Simulated assay, not measured.
Amino acid sequence: MARSSQPTGIHEDPGLQPERTTLAWGRTMMALATVSAIFLRWLPQHGFPIMLLFAVATGAAAAIYFTQRRRYSASSQGMVKESVDADIPAVFWTAVAGVMLGGLGIGVVLFTS
């Protein structure tokens, strides 16, 4: 039985940019989920305001999870068309979540200590 030389994915080179980008977003999502679990451990020490941090981290992780398929599809299609556009809104909102986590974290520590 002869092997087909036809690729199984949308683009011709599996392991290329769309897959690496998907892995990077997956690591970001897992980091946010891990951090949100750590925030829950701080709940007895800092009280209810820590739930704001938990909500932001969990929301950002969920947003990445639910938009991952769209991002991968757009990137794969861009590889076929030889024109891949950056996902500026995803990067922007992830940066906003990071700044919010930093600001809220400082606020929670300062006002609950």
Rank of each mutant, 00 (worst) to 15 (best):
M1A: 13
M1E: 12
A2P: 15
A2F: 10
A2G: 13
A2C: 07
R3Q: 13
S4A: 00
Q6R: 15
Q6E: 14
Q6W: 04
Q6F: 04
P7R: 06
T8V: 14
T8M: 12
G9M: 01
G9L: 04
H11Q: 10
P14L: 00
P14A: 03
L16R: 15
Q17W: 05
E19A: 05
R20I: 09
R20A: 11
R20H: 14
R20D: 11
T21S: 03
T21C: 01
A24D: 12
A24M: 10
W25Y: 11
W25A: 07
G26I: 01
T28C: 13
M29W: 05
M30L: 14
M30F: 08
A31T: 06
L32W: 00
L32Q: 06
L32H: 01
A33Q: 08
T34M: 08
S36Q: 12
L40T: 10
R41L: 11
W42N: 08
L43K: 02
Q45A: 11
H46Q: 08
G47L: 01
P49N: 03
P49W: 03
M51N: 10
M51F: 07
L52P: 02
L52K: 10
L53K: 00
L53M: 05
L53T: 00
A55N: 06
V56Q: 03
A57T: 01
A57Q: 05
T58G: 09
T58P: 10
A60Y: 01
A61M: 06
I64E: 06
Y65S: 13
F66I: 14
T67R: 15
T67W: 06
T67P: 09
T67M: 11
Q68I: 03
R69G: 02
R69I: 01
R69A: 09
R69N: 12
R69P: 02
R70C: 00
R71T: 13
R71L: 14
Y72V: 02
Y72R: 15
A74N: 15
A74S: 13
S75C: 13
S75W: 05
Q77V: 13
Q77G: 10
G78Q: 00
G78A: 00
G78I: 00
M79C: 09
V80Q: 12
V80L: 08
K81P: 01
S83L: 04
V84T: 08
V84K: 08
D85E: 13
A86D: 10
A86T: 08
I88H: 04
P89Q: 01
A90D: 11
A90H: 09
V91W: 11
F92Q: 13
W93Q: 06
A95I: 08
V96S: 07
A97P: 04
G98R: 01
M100V: 09
M100K: 12
L101Y: 02
L101P: 06
L101E: 10
L101R: 05
G103M: 07
G103K: 05
G103I: 02
G103V: 06
G103L: 08
L104K: 03
G105W: 01
I106G: 13
I106N: 14
V108P: 05
V108Y: 04
V109R: 15
S113D: 10
S113W: 12
S113M: 11
